[in-house]
Amino acid sequence: MKTLKELEEIRKRTLETINVRKDRTGTRVVVGMATCGIAAGARPVLMSIMDEVKKNNLADVVVAQTGCIGMCRLEPIVEVYKPGEDKVTYVKVTDAKALRIINEHVMQGKIVEEYTIGAGDK
């Protein structure tokens, strides 16, 4: 038997993990934050992204973190999901790069090609 409080906790906890299936209206910026990412400097990147999002009042932008994305040598990695578009993966992101990603891609819809994973491979 669950108390009402427990039900509410289950609701909140589960919603955080599965809301991406319903709420597809906003942009999601996801930072790889496993050990490798943190070692590579993902935390300051995450912080500056959050600051920038707050500063510009981007209410429909969700900043999230995720585990190892599986490409440790390219960390820190930032992924941008815009509804209806392919995911864009940025690699070896720094504070300064993160600011451009937010300003140009998230806010104006212009992908910063030179930081993307495709550009790194070439």
């Binding site: 009402l4 039900l7 289950i10 609701r11 906890r13 589960t14 919603l15 599965i18 809301n19 299936r21 319903k22």
Partner: peptide, 25 residues
């Protein structure tokens, strides 16, 4: 198509059993 129907927590997450709570309380 949005939730796993065999996991009650996923139903609860999208406001499941909230209506029952509202009614009973």
């Amino acid at each position: 198509g949005v939730i796993n129907p065999e996991n009650i927590d996923e139903y609860i997450a999208f406001d499941g059993y909230k209506a029952l709570e509202k009614v009973l309380t």
